[in-house]
Design a protein around this nucleic acid. Sequence first.
DNA 1: TATGAATGAGAATTCATTCAT
DNA 2: AATGAATGAATTCTCATTCAT
Lengths: 236, 236, 236, 236
Amino acid sequence: MDELIEPATRRTPKGNTTREAIKLAAKRALAVDGFSNAKIADIMASVNRSPGAFYKYYPSKEALLHELLDEFRTRLKAEVNRPLNTRGDPLEHLKERLGAFWKIYRDDWPVATAAFQMSMADREFARAWHGVRQQGIRGMSSVIKLLQKEGYCAGLDSELIASALCSMLEYTGYNWTARAGDFPDRLIDDGAAIEVLTRLVLNGVRGGAAETTAASPADKEPGRDPARRRAKSERG
Amino acid sequence: MDELIEPATRRTPKGNTTREAIKLAAKRALAVDGFSNAKIADIMASVNRSPGAFYKYYPSKEALLHELLDEFRTRLKAEVNRPLNTRGDPLEHLKERLGAFWKIYRDDWPVATAAFQMSMADREFARAWHGVRQQGIRGMSSVIKLLQKEGYCAGLDSELIASALCSMLEYTGYNWTARAGDFPDRLIDDGAAIEVLTRLVLNGVRGGAAETTAASPADKEPGRDPARRRAKSERG
Amino acid sequence: MDELIEPATRRTPKGNTTREAIKLAAKRALAVDGFSNAKIADIMASVNRSPGAFYKYYPSKEALLHELLDEFRTRLKAEVNRPLNTRGDPLEHLKERLGAFWKIYRDDWPVATAAFQMSMADREFARAWHGVRQQGIRGMSSVIKLLQKEGYCAGLDSELIASALCSMLEYTGYNWTARAGDFPDRLIDDGAAIEVLTRLVLNGVRGGAAETTAASPADKEPGRDPARRRAKSERG
Amino acid sequence: MDELIEPATRRTPKGNTTREAIKLAAKRALAVDGFSNAKIADIMASVNRSPGAFYKYYPSKEALLHELLDEFRTRLKAEVNRPLNTRGDPLEHLKERLGAFWKIYRDDWPVATAAFQMSMADREFARAWHGVRQQGIRGMSSVIKLLQKEGYCAGLDSELIASALCSMLEYTGYNWTARAGDFPDRLIDDGAAIEVLTRLVLNGVRGGAAETTAASPADKEPGRDPARRRAKSERG
DNA sequence: TATGAATGAGAATTCATTCAT
DNA sequence: AATGAATGAATTCTCATTCAT
């Protein structure tokens, strides 16, 4: 299922090396130009191959992106399926997943971005990209649901929450990493990124049911937060 | 001042009508195909005009997007500059802004998405798009800073928070609205969207100073929180 | 014959004024851009008229150039037909004609240049332009023939001489006048231009028969020029 | 050094062949249609290639003309720099150069003509074309200056003379060669052309100082001019 | 098998000309 | 008479893909 594309050259080590080199070069090209602006000739040139050679490895430009996208999905899936090793604390689960997702999105935004673009014009990519998003959302919402069982963020649609959080992570992966992102003059390291994102999300998710309208400036004491109280009592 | 692009035709009512029709059609085309796949001929056909007529209004396809983007930026800016009418409660401010931003992003994701795509390949768009992002971030972070004065989300970089929240809003605007978004079979109305996003963000932002990494005042027993324990030990 | 084009609007003084204004503007546009790059819309704009109004005066862009060209030809023809008022000296005749041609070419190079360009791609213009060239050549060669009767430049084809001299005058008219000519930083006034051209041509034409090969370094004294001597003797 | 344009393909013999074929075909097309009317599709068709193939060799139609023009300039320059092998006789020098220029102009008028046309509308071509003209003028005026040291054509601006002579040669190259030139029914061979031009120029240049208009204040009596005297007496 | 020249289907763009107002 | 919006044919240029060598 995951390996839909099984092209001619896969066996020989040399072919495999070239194939991997092409994918690497393609990601770089994607990062710089986006999918439609990335040129096969350029990609192949940066691998010291002729443009024609590309078609030994992929039947089309789209197929290459499909393979990259599939690898991306596989990576996400592996994380989603990974047994969460923290004995039961859902907040810990969330934090773990968040960090893992962050790293995946941070590395693969060129592919994600390209797939996103293509998904708007191409039915096949729309389907594939949707699958990737779903992967992320499933992984996120499973943790959310655990939290909701504990009383966190009660009453909210876990799918929507998961979708919004994935959107944040994914797009932030781009905006804090890419040249053309929000902070061109600043290098945001993983530590800082993960800290901000984690605290934002942890709080966001942990919040109680009625907070939307209730919060008053006087309500400065977190300890009084009913959601947290509930969470505690449920755990205890 | 915001209208840097002053096209030839602005006078005659007929021309104005056509111009507006083109923009509307362009947004539709952008939503369906993305920028590079949107064809001028198609846009003009959907306005019952010949392809050549386009160039009475815009010198190029790019110029059209620049104008749409500028309008988007202007809309954001208007919201950012709007005096917040709730007598001082920063959480209320946040909620207001959030709802406003949501509506802007929900309506303008075709333009935002197109500009985002173009920003990767085109220097001029990179600059323009960055300006729009900054607009959003500025608006968001000004509210965040107010909150921080009140003691909320202490210690976090308000710019980073604002950037992440804008990313979430913007990309969610797409994912909950577009055909090819996360929930093709579901119509997510404004009420639901705003509620989820607002609660997520409100909580996220309201969280106490040191929740992720440190104990909250009420949380007397830090040792019991496994997440915090790990965070601590990793730092130490 | 000269007025092939007799369009609708010619009677009313207002129409005539506009018509003349169009021609003037067209010449300016021709000078700056050449024919194919000159835009009707621009020409009409510089006359404060709408593009559509052009077709009140001319059925096509080509027709305009044809009219300008025809006027040019008429001007040349008038000069060619003008009775030469210097009692008989053919050298004086040549000088007169030369000065007159210089002024015509200097003024009308935009039209000449445009017609020349068009003559390469368009059969109709080829014919018309050829007629203009012939006009010039005829005028020139008639004087040359007079000179040859007097023994000057014997043995040379007067048509070829005339053609070469017209080429020189015509193209020099451009190169010494136009912005993009040979001397952008220098204003060459009529006096200087006419002096150089006249002396060049007078000498060129006056020379004896066999000069081509004969000239020797020792032959520093023009009066002793063997070529001239030979020319004499050949005639004698 | 003269080859500023260094195209992508120069290596393979096949590519080189095509490249040269394109240039040849382009010159033909230029001769027939002029630059703006020459269509890339036609040029490529006459080389049995698809339109797209053109862009393997040149980034644009303009670039092609620039290369042709550069070759033209190089040819001129080679002639200008060629050591004149006739031991010192400036008239011989002039003759040599003239013949060489004639052949260059006769062969390259399609390029010259196209460049001339483009120079009016395009800044880059204006510059390039000006460079070519200067090349010719420099070559011509260097010989003129030699002659002036010997007392020929005294008092005249050698640059102007050179410019006028180049204009004559260049434009005559067209008018005596091209289909649409002055003598469509006549084939003017090199011998005849060179003879006429050479004698014209040699005489023109060799003429004495004050011949033009009898203009020197002291020279009240035109009859004192030896040349004129001769002319008169011959008539008488 | 690899190369890189060639293909060819499109897309953007231009502008003389038309025509409803 | 005039306007200026609209037309639409024509042309340049792009680039994924093919194929002869």
